[in-house]
Every structure is written in structure tokens, then in C-alpha cells.
Design a protein around this nucleic acid. Structure first.
Lengths: 109, 109
DNA sequence: AAGTAATATTGCAATATTACGATTAAGGGA
DNA sequence: TCCCTTAATCGTAATATTGCAATATTACTT
């Protein structure tokens, strides 16, 4: 036991959970806000900004990246992380669709 | 280590993470859909519907309830779980506000 | 080629989550 | 009162997550 049973859930439910997991940690909420807010998409300062160690930030970035929410020019000394706006908005759609569908089907509305 | 460092994050970031955690498991995504879809808000069948054991479902319900997303008449033999629509929509607002703010501040839009 | 700065990876410890069997508590009905 | 049904709680095992020190990698610079 301990591992999530995936076989019993629909693809949509699993996808929702995967995206939600990105935001299920305050550090990642913070990191995404910061990445989006920087005009020049400067990285590295995330470590100073958020207040966690470099390896930990790198780990969180991987989680966000695995969900497809990052887009960056990974060349040069300074890696440039940017928000993948298309994917991000696609995810926002998914959330809103789920939220609206859930509320709409509710009995006590 | 292993525990999330809360002191370094803002209250908004922590709140976002807490709500996101509710949807960070496909079983809870499924449970919320089911609870909302039932006119009579019948419980118990969640166990049959989702396909996890009764204690596991009960545990997931606690997580959802801790976030304030449930509202129910907990009297009688059959406990009646309902969606707390007000809180749910409030949470939807929080997500949308965060999403919109993040995208709006983005450099590569 | 050697040095340097920036980020990723590895390894590990601490804690959290997921899942379920067994048990317990709370009501309703005989 | 005594069962029966329903759901919460306890205990525990398996797995995942979080965090960091140490190390490796990458790419620019000199």
C-alpha cells in the first residue's frame, strides 16, 4: 500500500490531480508567480527569492516542468525559465471546466 | 527534514497549496464530482463508486472536509454529504485570481 | 585548457500520504 | 435491550514528498 491506485480513476481525474499537485506546495505557487513576474525571466534568484536551497528549488522546478508549465531557452550560462502560457491557460480551462461542471451538477444550489 | 517550510511563504501561497492538495489526488477529484452529482447527496455508495475501501474514502473525505468544501447533515443513520457551494466557488475565485494574475504578469505573452 | 558561475543530480534523512484490516462508536429497528 | 447498519478511528505497512549537503555537469570566459 501507500501508492495511489491509478487504474480505478478516469484519465481526466488523473490529469486534474497531476496539475493540482503542482500547486499543492507553497514553494511551487511562489516559484510560478516569480517566474511569470520577471520580464527577463531571470532564474537563479528564485533561490534567494523563495528561501530554499538550490537543490530543493531545482527539484520543484522539475515538478513544474514535468507538468509542461515551463518553457525556456535552456542555453547559455544563465538558464531562462519562462511560463508556458499556452499550457498554463489550457490547465486553467481544465480547472474551470471541472469546477463549473461540479457546481452545476450540485443538488443544493 | 521532509516537512514543508511554511514560515517562508505568504498566507495566500499557503492557502492556494491547501486547496490544491484537495484536488491533488484522483480519488478526491472523483469523490467531489460524485458528491455534487447526487441529488440526494447519498454517501456510502462513494465506496462502491470510487473503488477504494471504506476507511480510505473516509480519510479522503476528511481532507476535503478540512478544506471546508463539505457541508452535510450529519444526523441519522445515513450521513449526508453535500458540497459547500459557497466555499467551493470562493476557492474557484482564488484559483482564477491566481491564474489570471500569473498570466497577466508574464513577459512572453 | 583551466577557471568560474549556474544548475542538475545523487544520496540520504525526516516527514507526509495512501491504503486497508480490525475495531470502535452511533443510531435505528426488532 | 440486542442486533444491524453505517461511518469514524486506530494501527500499521508501503510509498511519496520535502529538504539539503555533496558532487557532477554544463557552458561561458580567459
Amino acid at each position: 500500500m501507500g501508492a495511489t491506485k491509478l487504474s480505478i480513476h478516469t484519465q481526466e481525474q488523473i490529469e486534474m490531480a497531476q496539475f493540482a499537485k503542482v500547486f499543492a506546495h507553497p514553494a511551487r505557487v511562489s516559484i510560478l508567480q516569480y517566474i511569470a513576474s520577471q520580464d527577463s525571466c531571470i532564474c537563479g534568484d528564485i533561490v534567494d527569492k523563495v528561501g530554499l536551497s538550490q537543490p530543493t528549488i531545482s527539484q520543484h522546478l522539475q515538478v513544474i516542468n514535468a507538468a509542461g508549465l515551463l518553457k525556456g531557452t535552456f542555453k547559455g550560462k544563465t538558464i531562462c525559465y519562462c511560463l508556458n502560457v499556452e499550457k498554463f491557460q489550457q490547465m486553467q480551462e481544465l480547472f474551470n471546466s471541472y469546477f463549473n461542471k461540479t457546481v452545476a451538477s450540485c443538488c443544493n444550489i
